[in-house]
Computed example of a mutant assay.
Amino acid sequence: MNISLKKTIKLLALLILLVTITGCTTKPVFSNADQSLSNQHQGTAPKTETINETLPAEVTTSNPAVEYEPAWPDRAVKSSRGHLVNSCVPDELRDQATTLTTSDGVYLSALVLGSGNKGVLLAHEQGYSICSFLDMGTELADNGYLVIIPEYRNHGASHKIELNEHIELDAEVALNELKRMGAKRVF
């Protein structure tokens, strides 16, 4: 078996594991202006588009570091750029941390890995954190994907707020960040 086929099988196994863990069985999300999540949930077939397979240069996030109270202060550390990040993130990845701001003003710690026009959002469940997807995220990034792993509100190094409502806004800001960074297709 050649190396390329082995990598493809390994990546496919990771994606199957992702689907198994998250229970996600929907089609890929297309993040263009003509296709919305609400249309997909209504059964509308996604529009096809030509995707430029040329990978852009490594994209870095330009979001400013923000001061806020982290949900789990005993697990929050600052990157060298001042972004709060979960202490489970290895030192060599901490500078890939960023701060996202949701539409309702909540600050999320997120890790951005890799580059490319194919994006992957790895979203943890209630009670978990960015730590849940570090291995999978780095493997996907090593295989040419742009990956974002946010910590949702009231989790890890993200903003501690009074009510744990509207986590859909947390996924929305992460999807928007992938699009801003050049992802044409998002899973």
Rank of each mutant, 00 (worst) to 15 (best):
L12C: 15
L12W: 03
L14D: 10
L14F: 07
L15T: 06
L15F: 13
L17D: 11
L17N: 06
V19A: 11
V19F: 08
I21M: 11
T22Q: 02
G23S: 04
T26E: 09
K27Q: 12
K27N: 04
P28C: 11
P28F: 06
V29R: 06
V29N: 08
F30Y: 10
S31Q: 03
N32I: 08
N32M: 01
N32V: 07
N32T: 06
S38Q: 10
S38N: 08
S38E: 12
A45E: 12
A45M: 11
K47T: 05
E49I: 14
T50H: 01
E53R: 15
L55N: 05
A57Y: 14
V59K: 15
V59E: 01
T61S: 01
P64Y: 09
A65F: 04
V66G: 02
E67A: 10
P73L: 06
D74T: 14
R75P: 14
A76S: 13
V77L: 03
K78A: 15
S79L: 10
R81K: 08
G82V: 10
L84Y: 11
V85D: 13
S87Y: 00
S87V: 10
D91F: 13
R94C: 12
D95K: 15
Q96L: 03
T98V: 14
T98N: 03
S103T: 11
S103W: 08
V106S: 00
Y107R: 09
L108D: 03
L108T: 03
S109M: 14
A110I: 12
V112F: 09
G114I: 04
S115M: 01
G116L: 03
G116D: 06
A123K: 07
G127H: 00
C131H: 04
F133T: 08
L134Q: 10
L134R: 02
M136G: 15
G137K: 01
T138W: 05
T138L: 02
A141W: 12
A141T: 04
D142F: 12
D142A: 08
N143R: 02
Y145Q: 01
I149T: 14
I149H: 13
Y152N: 05
N154H: 11
N154G: 13
A157L: 08
S158L: 12
H159G: 09
H159W: 04
I161W: 07
E162I: 08
L163H: 07
L163V: 05
E165T: 15
H166K: 05
E168M: 09
E168W: 15
L169E: 00
L169G: 00
N176Y: 06
L178I: 02
R180D: 00
M181V: 05
A183M: 00
K184I: 03
V186M: 07
F187D: 11
